[in-house]
Measured scan of single mutants.
Amino acid sequence: MASDGVVVEIGKVTGSVGTTVEIPVYFRGVPSKGIANCDFVFRYDPNVLEIIGIDPGDIIVDPNPTKSFDTAIYPDRKIIVFLFAEDSGTGAYAITKDGVFAKIRATVKSSAPGYITFDEVGGFADNDLVEQKVSFIDGGVNVGNATPTKGATPTNTATPTK
C-alpha cells in the first residue's frame, strides 16, 4: 500500500443473489490541510450489481451534504461517478479525517463476483488547492465463495486525467 498520499479503498462485503448490500468507500491518509475537492470514477458490471443509491459517509460534515457531495450512476456506461467540492468557501466542510467517504447500496443480481474497480481520477486537492497523490484499492461483493480481489494492489495516480 502507498505510504504517502490519500488511499481510496472500496470495501469488500459478502452478499447473495437478491440481497441488498452496503459497500463502503474509505479514505485513508487524509492530509493535515484536509480535502477540499476530489472527483473520480469507479467501474462495475450492472449485470452483477444493480447500484440503487449512494449515501455520504461520516467524513462528509456539510450539514447539507447534497451541496458538497454528488454522485451519478450510469449503468449503460458501467460507471459510478463521485464528486466532492467543499461548499462553505472557508474550508469548514472539508474532509479532515480518515473514514467512510461514501456507502454504495447495491442489489446482487448474479452469482458472479461483484467487482467495483477504479477507472479514472480527475483530481484530489487540499484546502490550499494543492494537488494530492492518490491511490485506489478495488473491492466489491463476495457472492458465495467468490472473492472480488482483482486489482487489490493500489493504483498510483500522480496526475489528473480527463
Rank of each mutant, 00 (worst) to 15 (best):
1 M>K: 08
1 M>R: 06
4 D>R: 08
10 I>H: 09
11 G>P: 07
12 K>M: 14
12 K>T: 12
15 G>P: 09
17 V>R: 09
17 V>T: 07
18 G>L: 08
24 P>D: 03
26 Y>Q: 05
27 F>Y: 14
28 R>V: 06
28 R>W: 14
33 K>I: 15
35 I>W: 01
40 F>P: 00
40 F>S: 02
40 F>E: 14
41 V>F: 01
41 V>N: 00
44 Y>T: 06
46 P>M: 08
46 P>W: 11
46 P>D: 03
48 V>F: 04
50 E>R: 07
52 I>L: 07
53 G>V: 05
56 P>T: 10
57 G>Q: 15
60 I>L: 11
63 P>K: 14
64 N>T: 11
67 K>F: 10
67 K>A: 11
68 S>N: 15
69 F>C: 02
70 D>Y: 15
71 T>W: 02
71 T>M: 03
72 A>W: 01
72 A>H: 00
73 I>S: 04
78 K>F: 02
81 V>F: 01
81 V>N: 00
81 V>C: 01
84 F>P: 00
85 A>S: 03
86 E>V: 00
90 T>I: 15
93 Y>L: 11
94 A>E: 07
95 I>D: 04
95 I>K: 01
95 I>F: 13
100 V>F: 13
100 V>L: 05
100 V>M: 13
101 F>I: 10
103 K>H: 10
103 K>G: 13
109 K>Y: 08
110 S>T: 11
111 S>G: 13
112 A>K: 08
113 P>C: 09
114 G>V: 13
116 I>D: 01
116 I>T: 10
117 T>G: 07
117 T>R: 08
119 D>H: 03
119 D>Q: 06
121 V>G: 13
122 G>I: 00
124 F>M: 03
124 F>P: 00
124 F>G: 00
124 F>V: 02
125 A>H: 00
126 D>C: 01
127 N>H: 01
129 L>S: 02
131 E>S: 04
133 K>Y: 06
134 V>N: 04
135 S>Y: 12
136 F>W: 11
137 I>N: 12
138 D>T: 09
142 N>I: 14
143 V>A: 12
145 N>F: 15
145 N>P: 12
148 P>T: 05
149 T>K: 10
150 K>S: 11
152 A>V: 13
154 P>N: 11
155 T>W: 12
155 T>Y: 09
156 N>W: 10
157 T>L: 11
